[in-house]
């Protein structure tokens, strides 16, 4: 892995981290409404996985906690801020928020709140590519909770039968809203379900961004060779509530303390400093500059008017 790539990984993780932190501040200030879903502690998964794709030919189907993947695929901070704060000029015209963003020019097709619903759709996207002889790989995500939805099963079986170029990350962040893994499924590793579909599956540490990248690169390569879909379960911890209204008091404090030591941004910064790839001063500068970019973007976005009410009556049909 080149030093350039390693710095890129860190840069995108810091962007995701600071964007997330900005949204949490805006929520507390009453300036962000609806659900604010933090990806704190999960940045390595979003960034490492999306970096494995070729944004000129592949396609991203992110979930609501994958802001890092949006950035890797070229979404700008302003664009994401306008979407999150539902301001005039946002791509969704104010019709939706909460991370459900699509930008066909960037090959990003976002989520809906019904988790698992976009996996069959990701299949269709790459099926179309296959019919036209293109080599598009789709990367999509589901949580440890969402993995229990029937559509996920149907989609994986379908993708396996048709050998579709699909990479599914199961982001196991231990809790589905307030429900722990133990009440969601009985298998010790969700990736073992791959056996039942006749596809590749593995479980990895989701706080190690380089491991995520390498594992996803291998999955993308298999997909491109026509070997079909892969399931990659990434083990992380959801360090905030389901959304910011949720005080997550049901999560044992010791568990959070334990995972805090494995914070992906901090551990990767330390690693790159230790390897002499970047200095601690440069890391600090990167974080400060990114924070400044967020603050400037928030200022610009909050000055924008709300979308005109007439938008609510447009585009039900095209």
């Amino acid at each position: 892995m080149t030093n350039n790539t390693r710095v890129e990984l860190l840069k995108y993780m810091i962007m995701a981290r600071e964007f997330d932190a900005s949204m949490l501040r805006l929520y507390r200030q009453g300036k962000a409404f609806g659900g604010v879903y933090s990806q704190l502690g999960n940045e390595a998964v979003s960034v490492g996985s999306a970096m494995a794709l070729d944004p000129t030919q592949d396609v991203l189907f992110p979930m609501h906690r994958n802001v890092g993947a949006h950035f890797v695929f070229g979404a700008t901070i302003d664009q994401m801020m306008q979407n999150q704060l539902a301001r005039e000029g946002s791509q969704m015209r104010g019709t939706d928020g909460t991370g459900h963003y699509a930008d066909p020019r960037l090959r990003i097709y976002g989520n809906v709140s019904h988790l698992g619903a976009m996996i069959p759709v990701a299949n269709g996207f790459v099926l179309a590519g296959k019919l036209r002889g293109e080599n598009t790989v789709a990367l999509t995500y589901i949580g440890d909770g969402g993995a229990q939805v029937g559509e996920v099963h149907e989609a994986l079986n379908f993708a396996a039968v048709h050998k579709l170029p699909l990479v599914l990350i199961i982001e196991n962040n231990q809790y589905a809203y307030s429900t722990p893994n133990s009440q969601e499924f009985a298998v010790d590793q969700l990736s073992k379900r791959a056996i039942g579909y006749g596809i590749h599956g593995e479980t990895i540490d989701g706080t190690d961004v380089e491991l995520v990248l390498k594992t996803c690169q291998a999955a993308v390569a298999r997909a491109r060779r026509g070997e079909g879909p892969s399931i990659i379960e990434t083990q992380t911890m959801r360090m905030r509530g389901h959304a910011e209204h949720d005080d997550f008091s049901y999560v044992p404090k010791e568990l959070l303390d334990e995972w805090a030591l494995r914070d992906p941004v901090n551990t990767y910064s330390a690693k790159l400093i230790a390897d002499g790839v970047i200095s601690s001063e440069e890391v600090k500068q990167l974080r400060d500059t990114t924070l400044d970019q967020m603050i400037a973007s928030i200022d610009r976005t909050l000055e924008l008017p709300w979308p005109d009410a007439s938008e609510g009556f447009k585009q039900v049909f095209l």
Partner: peptide, 25 residues
């Protein structure tokens, strides 16, 4: 390629249609 038999999975079939439609079909 154009007359595709799918498993008994209406959600997967419907989703395949939606995704293909998003991708120009």
């Amino acid at each position: 390629q154009r007359i595709i038999d799918a498993p008994i999975s209406e959600a997967a079939i419907m989703g395949a249609g939606i995704g293909a439609a998003l991708n120009g079909m």
